[in-house]
Design a protein around this nucleic acid. Structure first.
Length: 744
DNA sequence: TGATTGCATATTTTT
DNA sequence: TATGCAATCA
């Protein structure tokens, strides 16, 4: 069948070929880090089309817009115009696209808006207030997380209520209910709703049928990161033709907190018993030294397909471990290394500095700035998250979707126009009582009790909105380009005028940001079209942009980013910082074994971003919020690397003497000797350390954080729970397999 | 109604 | 440290 010279296949290795040219049907590609995953995915798309598949019948799903764009761009040169018509989307944008056509059956209009994280929190906060729940006890962010989790598991408010056992959960279910009806009334969806409704559509016997029929082949990237709702979506999509290519790596599943279930990829062969499985273990990215180090870390996880990555690129330089005095020292060291290595690479863009939490970026920024090294921080403040941009977008969203209460609130107060809290409350109350819609209520705001005083400004505002809407819709003329509408909003809302009047440097920047928004609209104009449809399209794009989509490339600047944002990227030189217990693995994930397994995968992801040089670092002391310093103990992940493979460097400086990070006198706790002297070898016993897995009452043990203590209640086995009295920390219950207790 | 001030509080990761 | 929120005043 295959011709002698086949450009889609010839330059691939044997496993890659097998994956690309597998016949239609269920296929699982276990693609190790750096094994040419994207290449396989794009070639397979091209291959299927070449073998006769209709592009309209191909659906490729990724997690980021960037990945989707990359895929489209890489298929194009292989096939030219023949590739047009494929559906290459993120989960969210694919659903949004389907819903723009079908959402009316769920009671929304086609110009629904998509809420961002802030809007979600605001809606949750309002719901909490209405239910008179204390925001201290019910943090809006936590409640949103809870709601989000329910939706990811496809649970409705009613189901959530029925399943709630404790009072807290019951209250959350009530908030969920209210939150949901609030969104529905505002004709808006949150991120999770996009997927939830996508599933409802595709699983519907009638409404879903045409789509189940249309998509003859479905390709899913990063399958290990799918949550339950996404899994169901995929299952529904492939229900008719059963041709699915799932590509992923269970070792790189890092979105459990977002509902991702590694089980989805691990169960693939149960779901599709006739599945073909291809393993890509040849690595084209890193040196053997880097693969060995990362491989031995991830080897400490179970629940994985055993595999061993290999390369023929040679050993390369040893992985370097730096033991810093504190965060400042660590950052300065990173900057120095970058300076020293600069001649060996093409530009500063060849360096990446990774960290677990965003807060860590500050010290690094200071050091890079001080060293005169250009850098960018990924996800620092998204363009679309800037206040002035959000204000402008609020107007646009309101023009597109007049029922969007959250946007109304925002827009009506930017700039201030004499409509305050009291008026808004009266308006909300009126709408809740009468069930009247927002646009309708605005028409006769003067009659609403409590809102009378603001009648004039409200009427003026309603008139402004109506004018903007008429302009966009092109009533009496041509439908307006999106950029035109944006400009009109900036001019007529007073946003431009307000900033111009202010005259400060900051106002100028904001003014320029708004100008940039016009530019973006102008650039995207051809893609999104004009009129109200084009506007809705434009807003959807803006809402679904993610941090990871904005990683700058080839700009000659060091890239600073979280480990999560680094997934899917590669750099010649990588610094992985803050390898300390409690920070990485993070304390919030220490409670259960699966949490730690996920942190370990995150560590693996970070290490495998490196092509040639990998630098690890930890600090003996790290400043917490607001000044105080706490001792930092080397991460257990460092123990999991063969010490002989590490080149250890240690700061001789005492902790807390580096510039701004100076610790307050007397606050410096005395760390145990091993933490002071560093960790060339294993300073702490691993989870399997002999003797510490079987403890009885009366045994004396030592804990890395709380020092010595006496066992009150014994236990044995890795899952055993012991109760220990620590003079320093009181009585604690610890899981033997996790606590790394040492017998004294 | 809207701006200012002072205090409390938080920090994991994000489509 | 930096941000956001609530109380307070103009």
């Amino acid at each position: 069948m295959r011709s002698a010279a086949d450009p889609l296949i010839d330059d691939l290795n044997e496993e890659q070929r097998e994956a690309v040219s597998a016949p239609a049907g269920p296929l699982l590609v276990l693609a190790g880090a750096g094994s040419g995953k994207t290449r396989v995915l794009t070639r397979r798309l091209a291959y299927l089309i070449r073998e006769g598949a209709d592009p309209m019948g191909l659906m490729a799903i990724t997690f980021t817009n960037k990945a989707a764009r990359e895929m489209t761009e890489r298929v194009e040169p292989l096939l030219g115009a023949r590739s047009h018509g494929m559906w290459v989307h993120t989960f969210h944008s694919a659903c949004a696209r389907l819903l723009r056509r079908e959402i009316t059956r769920f009671g929304y209009t086609t110009r629904f808006t998509i809420l961002d994280a802030d809007d979600q929190r605001a809606a949750a906060r309002e719901s909490l207030r209405e239910l008179q729940l204390d925001e201290k006890r019910f943090a809006p962010a936590a409640v949103v997380g809870r709601i989000s989790r329910a939706k990811q598991d496809l649970r409705t408010p009613e189901q959530e209520r029925a399943a709630a056992k404790d009072p807290w959960s019951q209250k959350c279910a009530a908030v969920y209910e209210r939150y949901q009806s609030k969104l529905e009334r505002a004709n808006s969806l949150d991120f999770d709703d996009l997927i939830v409704l996508g599933v409802r559509l595709l699983e519907d016997p009638e409404a879903g049928a045409p789509y189940r029929e249309q998509f003859r082949h479905v390709l899913v990237d990063e399958y290990q990161d799918t949550n339950h709702a996404q899994y169901r979506l995929v299952r529904a999509l492939v229900a008719a033709h059963r041709s699915i290519t799932a590509v992923g790596d269970e070792d790189q599943s890092i979105y459990r907190f977002r509902g991702a279930d590694v089980g989805n990829i691990l169960r693939f062969e149960e779901d599709f018993p006739d599945a073909r499985v291809v393993r890509l273990e040849r690595n084209y990215r890193s040196t053997q030294a880097i693969l060995d180090a990362s491989g031995s870390v991830i080897g400490h996880n179970d629940r994985r397909y055993p595999k061993r990555l290999w390369t023929d690129r040679g050993r390369g330089s040893a992985v370097v471990l730096y033991q810093a005095a504190d965060a400042g020292d660590e950052a300065v060291w990173v900057a120095r290394q970058i300076r020293a290595l600069r001649p060996e690479v093409e530009g500063f863009g060849d360096f990446a500095v990774l960290y677990r939490t965003r807060a860590q970026s500050r010290a690094l920024e200071e050091a890079l700035l001080g060293a005169g090294i250009p850098y960018v921080v990924v996800g620092d403040l998204r363009f679309y998250d800037r206040k002035e941009v959000k204000d402008a977008l609020a107007y646009l969203r309101l023009v597109s979707n007049p029922m969007d209460w959250a946007c109304f609130r925002r827009a009506v107060a930017a700039p201030r126009r004499g409509v305050g809290e009291a008026t808004l409350a009266a308006l909300a109350e009126h709408m809740a009582q009468t069930g009247e819609s927002l646009p309708s209520a605005l028409e006769h705001a003067g009659d609403i009790p409590g809102a009378g005083r603001a009648a004039a400004p409200l009427a003026a505002f309603a008139k402004l909105l109506e004018e903007l809407r008429a302009l966009a819709a092109g009533e009496g003329g041509q439908p307006a380009e999106v950029a035109e509408v944006v400009l009109a909003v900036l001019d007529r809302s007073g946003l431009y005028a307000e900033l111009r009047a202010e005259g400060t440097e900051e106002a100028r920047t904001r003014y320029e940001n708004l100008g940039e928004l016009v530019n973006v609209a102008r650039q995207n104009g051809p893609q999104v079209g004009s009129g109200l449809e084009g506007l809705a399209q434009f807003l959807e794009q803006a809402a679904l942009i993610a941090d990871a989509d904005q990683v700058p490339s080839g700009e000659g600047a060091v890239v600073c980013l979280t480990l999560h944002a680094a997934k899917g990227l590669e750099f010649p030189c990588v610094f992985l910082t803050g390898l300390e217990e409690g920070l990485f693995p993070h304390s919030r994930s220490l409670e259960d074994a699966e949490g730690i397994a996920e942190e370990r995968r995150l560590c693996y992801v970070g290490m495998t971003r490196a092509k040639r040089r990998l630098f690890l670092s930890h600090a003996r002391q790290r400043a917490q919020y607001g000044g105080g310093a706490i001792p930092g103990y080397p991460s257990r992940f460092l123990d999991e690397i063969d010490p002989a493979a590490l080149e250890v460097q240690s700061s001789r400086r005492e902790a807390g003497t580096s510039g701004m990070w100076t610790a307050r006198a007397g606050r410096t706790p005395s760390a145990p000797a091993q933490a002071r002297s560093g960790v060339p070898t294993r300073p702490l016993p691993g989870p399997d350390a002999a003797g510490a897995l079987d403890l009885r009452a009366g045994d004396r043990v030592s804990h890395h954080r709380w020092g010595e203590g006496v066992v009150v209640e014994g236990a044995s086995g890795a899952n055993g729970e012991v109760t220990v009295d620590f003079p320093a920390a009181g009585r604690r219950v610890l899981v033997l397999g996790l606590a790394r207790l040492q017998r004294v």
